[in-house]
Write a protein that binds this DNA or RNA. Structure first.
Lengths: 358, 358
DNA sequence: AGCAAAAATTGAATCGATCCAACGAAAATA
DNA sequence: TATTTTCGTTGGATCGATTCAATTTTTGCT
């Protein structure tokens, strides 16, 4: 009566119960997969044998090999697994992915590890029909690993400039342009950019050279979008500080510290993610600066949290859930040519942006 | 040059490249799994053949059968997949599960479906080493399904009274008692209980009889805890309305509507989940009732949202993440006797509870 | 060169199922 | 009763790898 639940040894296979029931393994298999084609008497005999021997039904491990399809898609990141449940952007994305998977009956496998080696192994050994790759930090490495599996996969965020990988993303240049335009229209002329990573494991003020060498095309594109608009209204972009964060609290605060140490601090902040923008909101309020009276902020992403911050955040909303849904469909119907989708973004004006005071 | 990424036909197996490289499949296998034991020259030859033929490494589907272990644990619910990313309780739980999985290198498979039949199939065919079963609505069915797989599994929430299933939960009776005690100490004597489901697919005011017939022991235990304390201070528990919600917005509001239609509305609400409590907060404020001046509320669970509500919610906090971590460990080290853990809860006093006005 | 020990390689067996062509028995038709 | 259909059952082949005892090759030593 001790450990019945937990599986001790369980060497009971379909073949065992077939023998016990006195039928061939072919028939035994049919009892489980197409019960209607086997005579009732035999069916019951086999079922009884299964019951008696504690057989838990055909082992999916065995079936899998023959069937070929796992019926699950893998979602990969180079972050700890908890990223999927902690990060607002990831959560909305996963909600979209979930919807599409529910609709088709596919399962979801979370394939992820912060550790490089572990990550490689996890991707190599993931039992999935395809991958959806979150191209955040470590994206290029991840895409490479996924590609090596030779399974269908799609990259989220058109970070990759490599046209041979399927990808789903937004027009970062245009989106950033709209964000900047919103602020220039309000009359702002003194800006700072709080950027996403241009390359792995680095933070700090960024030189034009570093931008050119960016690993992450998406980050560079957003900056291009910002600068294009700022130039248009005559702002000297070489004077606009660009601080590269790791999209986390610590580096963002460090960046703000530096930027607001200036004699002529910005009246407007262009944040490349809502995450950064929300941290900035906190930091500014702690610092006694009012948003939007002293400083305006525009974020990027459109996560739900941005709608309920204090003050609510003006941002460039991506159709995050829709991107997730599209990604699943791209995997499951992966035929035809490599699909690259570019979805529209939308400026959502809330209370974090207003005309500058002076 | 069209669809290179997506897998067209890929009948290239380890055996193929072995033949191409002129070695046995045993050696070819070693090249990938224990490269150090094969002579460099041979190793390179095999690698080159693999590269040339577009071989993506040993197929985990094949390896799996031999290895026996999937190295992933399944998390099961009878909800749509998006539940994992939407529900606050689930998210904290998943964060705990993630941590433990990260630490051991195990993957996570989300096994879930609202549809009954789909759910059964998903559980039967899930490629996992064990299940963690979320015993929310539909929990009993789920436990049954999981048990049939004859894999290690642990139920979250000691809902099941069946001592043969491993389970992790809190002392619901004691927790509910503490919640009630907090309110009676403040001087409250007029109560209403907003309950979790006692059985599937039913909402409304609950009779003592229905409580006795409850499918969900956890719900019944919490009610027992509440009533035990209320009785202690002389409240007539037969007069305390108990409204069974589906732990969602609609049924909770419907219940409040009924409860506050009374001539002698309660001065304190005992909510069996933070979710319910938070909805109540909204509803009361919309109704022009002040919390805690007009009505006090105590929740149950201790989800993060409870700390930032308006007003912040007094609640009975479960060690949610810790429960998740324990569950993973229970699966992975599933040996020895069936483990049943009962974790302590903690009263967290915030601004939603105060002495009654009169 | 000759022999023993060490290293590399082979190939059959195995993991647990599903599929399917072939076959035997029962039912329908002539 | 003979002949054709239909239905149920069988058992070998297959999915794609890993493992390991046996064998061959290489290395080391005298």
């Amino acid at each position: 009566m001790a450990s019945l639940t937990a599986g001790n040894r369980r060497p009971v296979r379909l073949a065992d119960i077939a023998k016990a029931a006195g039928v061939s393994h072919g028939t035994a298999s049919n009892v489980f997969s197409r019960p209607e084609i086997v005579r009732e008497e035999v069916r019951e005999r086999v079922r009884a044998a299964a019951e008696a021997m504690g057989y838990g039904g055909p082992d999916p491990k065995g079936r899998l090999l023959r069937a070929g399809k796992v019926n699950a898609i893998g979602v990969a990141t180079a972050e700890p697994l908890s990223y999927f449940f902690d990060d607002p952007f990831a959560r909305v994305m996963m909600a979209g992915i979930s919807q599409a998977c529910d609709a088709t009956g596919a399962g979801i496998s979370l394939v992820s590890a912060a550790n490089n080696e572990q990550l490689a192994w996890n991707i190599q050994s993931a039992l999935v029909d395809g991958f959806i790759v979150f191209c955040i930090e470590g994206g290029s490495r991840l895409v490479e690993l996924a590609r090596e599996r030779k399974l269908p996969f799609v990259a989220l965020d058109l970070d990759s400039e490599d046209g041979s990988v399927a990808a789903i993303g937004v027009d970062n240049i245009a989106g950033a342009g709209v964000a900047a335009r919103h602020l220039t229209d309000l009359g702002h002329r003194r800006f700072a950019v709080m950027a996403l990573p241009f390359a792995d494991n680095r933070t700090g003020l960024v030189s034009a050279e570093q931008v050119r060498a960016a690993t992450y095309a998406g980050t560079r594109d957003r900056l291009t979008g910002y600068f294009r608009e700022l130039s248009r209204v005559g702002v000297d972009i070489s004077k606009v500080p660009v601080y590269e964060t790791a999209n986390d609290v610590a580096s963002t605060k460090a960046g703000l510290e530096i930027i607001f140490a200036s004699d002529t601090p910005p009246t407007a902040i262009l944040a490349m993610s809502d995450r950064i923008a929300l941290v900035a909101l906190d930091w500014l309020s702690a610092r006694g600066l009012s948003v939007p009276d002293d400083v305006s902020i525009v974020g990027f992403d459109g996560v739900p949290e941005a709608a309920v911050s204090e003050p609510p955040l003006t941002t460039i909303a991506q159709p995050i859930a829709e991107m997730g849904r599209l990604a699943v469909r791209a995997i499951l119907e992966s035929n035809g040519p490599v699909s690259r989708h570019q979805l529209p973004v939308e400026l959502i004006v809330r209370a974090s942006s207003a005309s500058p005071r002076d």
